[in-house]
Amino acid sequence: MTESLALYIERVIEFSPRLFDSLWETGIMLFFAMIAAILLGIPVGTLLYLTADSRPMANRFVNRLINILVNIIRSFPFLLLVVAMQPFVRQVYGRATGDPIAASFPMVVIAIALYARFVEQSLMEVPKGIIETAQSMGATNWQLVWKFLFVEARSSLVIGFTTAVISFVSYSTIMGVVGGGGIGDFAIRFGYQRYETDIMYTAIVLIIILVEVFQWLGLKLAKKLDKR
């Protein structure tokens, strides 16, 4: 028992540089996905909300268009999205595989679509009376969003973000299939192709811990922000 444990630890130490490299690559992908979710997912989701029927910026054409785009991206099997985006990524970035930044492109696209939907849902939970109050005070749409909607929806936005990030972890592992690096790539190379099962399980446990930490942080922050 102690012998096999010692052997396991030895192997983990041996593989740890590669394991940490993979985690770092996953981190890069998650970083770009999170930035995209915040900088673009929030505006797109807010626009989805505001342009719907009987909302302050009701516009059937814009709403339909964004809705269709978001639905297409979200219903695309992610692996196919990755493959479909390769020519585009190659054109823009120079290479489409073997690098976490190249792998971040499809991550960014799915991150925007996924979080936009969560943002829209969070805003739908804000009572209608709040919008009416903002309008009765003569608030601009910008003020309505920043000073009313986001204030009331903030803990729900954080919970949605947490759920989205956890999905990003899952999406990032798919990138391993096209050699995009990251923890999924690691698991395929060592666990699937080389039958280093113990190392693969170690990687999986690390992913689980990562997810748990995100979930815990997200809920804690959401709770702190929620004064309702």
């Binding site: 009572p127 009376g129 709040i130 009416e132 109050t133 009765s136 005070m137 009313f148 204030v151 009331e152 903030r154 803990s155 922000l225 929620d226 004064k227 309702r228």
Partner: peptide, 13 residues
């Protein structure tokens, strides 16, 4: 100014 039946306060403020 307007006063509402359901008060319409921001609960996070």
């Amino acid at each position: 100014g307007m006063v509402f039946q359901q008060f319409n306060l921001l609960n996070n403020k």
